Computed example of a mutant assay.
Amino acid sequence: MSEKPRPWGRGALGNPGSRYLSHATESVDDGWHRDDPPPLRTSLSVEHARSALSWNDSPDVPFDRSLNPYRGCEHGCIYCYARPYHARVDLSPGLDFESRLFHKPDLPERLRDELGARSYRPAPVAIGTATDAYQPVERELELTRRTIEVLLECRHPFSIITKSALIERDADLIGAAAEQGLAQVVFSLTTLQTKLARTMEPRAASPARRLEAMARLAEHGIPVGIMVAPIVPVLTDHELERLMAAGRVAGARSACYSLLRLPGEVSGLFSEWLKTMEPDAYDHVMNRLREAHGGLDRDERFGTRMRGAGVYADLMSQRFALAARRLGLGPAAPLRCDLFRPPGRHGQLSLF
Rank of each mutant, 00 (worst) to 15 (best):
R145I: 10
A52R: 03
G14M: 07
F340D: 11
D172L: 13
G295N: 02
H23S: 10
R34G: 05
G128D: 04
A215M: 04
E272M: 10
R253V: 15
G72F: 09
Y120I: 14
H103L: 11
I231F: 03
C154I: 00
S51P: 01
S317P: 00
N56Y: 06
D172F: 15
P93E: 15
T191Q: 04
L235K: 08
L107T: 03
L289T: 01
I174H: 04
G76C: 00
R326N: 11
E168F: 00
L182A: 06
E291R: 13
A133W: 02
H103C: 13
K163I: 04
I222P: 00
L262E: 01
G347W: 06
E179Y: 09
H156Y: 11
R34W: 15
E153V: 02
S188H: 05
A255M: 01
V311E: 13
S188D: 04
L235H: 06
A52E: 06
G221S: 12
A321D: 14
S2D: 13
L101Y: 12
R34N: 14
Y134E: 03
A82M: 03
F302K: 06
H86P: 02
A87D: 06
D60P: 02
S66L: 10
D170L: 00
H220S: 10
V285P: 06
H103Q: 04
P93D: 07
R325K: 12
I222K: 01
A117G: 05
L143V: 05
R209M: 12
D283M: 05
R203I: 12
I161V: 15
D280K: 12
V185I: 08
P331Q: 14
H238M: 04
A332S: 10
L53G: 03
A323V: 00
E140M: 05
A229Y: 04
L235W: 05
A229Q: 05
A183Q: 01
S2I: 10
R112V: 05
E98L: 10
T129C: 07
